[in-house]
């Protein structure tokens, strides 16, 4: 890696004494120059701002039905008005308000599914990678079983049995999308476990939880964060798919997937009903993936300059 910071030596003409930056400095410097990371981060940040300030953005109650103002088209069409910038739906609810509150649902589902998946996947991956042998065989079998299950079908079956609600959707999706965490963490743990510094820590008398959490985990953090961003995107899309099928979040909650589902009957006449939440979903998931991709480059220890 090329030196980035240098310091003139006492007695010039000898060249420089190279001062290498700390891992943190390298990361900060790369963050500021990585386009994908910045663009993706800004996209996700935008959705966050919308979600946090939803009450201020929304001029109407997202649940309030006003049947006299049904199917008002967005402001850029001929019949649109600034009263409802994104129009209203078939129930006369303000689309912008529903979209803003929907961001909360999507982000909440994305992050909480990821958190559940991370806990399951990281534990399984660490155990399999660190202990190897029998533990590895059992975990690998569990992973294989999980990969053989079609996520959407299982989710539909469970929701059909337990009824659709945000809590159920989060639990079901969280318990279904941990596979990537487990697979990637298992492989990286295997690599890191063999490093001499882990052996040295073991020889210093560190306990197994200490080794896993304090010595191995910091070196897994970048893989974890990258998988986490991808899983958030995946959870958001799965939620939308479930809601679209009527098996996820139940009406009248303003979920983006549900909005698409409710708009699909009128899709041919009023395409904005489907396009607007669709674009929002695309925007958020693209941002998440760009951000995750950028994070991988930014945090990779050896750097790819």
């Amino acid at each position: 890696m090329p030196p980035v910071e240098t310091q003139q030596q006492f007695d010039s003409g000898l060249g420089l004494e190279v001062v290498f930056p700390t891992p943190g400095q390298i990361m900060r410097r790369r963050m500021l120059t990585h386009k994908g990371f910045i663009i993706g981060g800004l996209m996700v940040l935008a959705v966050f701002i919308v979600a946090i300030f939803a009450p201020y953005i929304a001029q109407h109650d997202p649940y309030h039905q006003d049947l006299s103002n049904r199917m008002i088209t967005p402001v850029w069409s001929e019949t649109g008005s600034w009263e409802h910038p994104l129009g209203t739906d078939a129930m006369g609810r303000d689309y912008l308000s529903r979209l803003a509150y929907g961001a909360r649902i999507s982000l909440f589902i994305g992050f909480s599914c990821m958190a559940i998946a991370a806990v399951i996947g990281i534990s399984l991956g660490l155990i399999a990678g660190y202990f190897g042998g029998m533990a590895d065989m059992i975990v690998s079998f569990i992973i294989t079983v999980r990969l053989a299950l079609p996520a959407v079908l299982v989710a539909i079956a469970v929701v059909a049995l337990m009824g659709g609600s945000i809590q159920v959707v989060v639990m079901v999706l969280g318990c279904l999308i941990w596979d990537r965490f487990a697979v990637i963490l298992r492989a990286t743990t295997q690599q890191i476990r063999a490093m001499d510094y882990v052996q040295a820590a073991k020889a210093a008398g560190c306990s197994i939880p200490w080794l896993m959490i304090r010595e191995i985990m910091p070196n897994l953090l970048n893989s974890i964060v990258i998988v986490a961003t991808l899983e958030i995107g995946r959870a958001i899309l799965l939620e939308a798919a479930l809601s679209f099928l009527g098996m996820g979040v139940q009406p009248p909650t303003p979920s983006w997937g549900l909005m698409i589902s409710e708009g699909k009957d009128m899709m041919l006449f009023d395409p904005y009903l489907v396009t607007i939440p669709g674009v929002a979903l695309f925007f958020l998931v693209l941002g998440m993936n760009l951000f995750g991709d950028g994070l991988r480059d930014v945090t990779s220890p050896e750097g790819r300059s």
Binding site: D196, K202, G205, P301
Partner: peptide
């Protein structure tokens, strides 16, 4: 393992992999 560690300590070959980079 702690008792062993107090009496005997290792120095490994490769100083690039024997120190935790983080």
């Amino acid at each position: 393992s702690k008792e062993i560690a107090r009496i005997i300590q290792p120095v490994f070959q490769d100083p690039y992999s024997s120190l935790n980079p983080r």
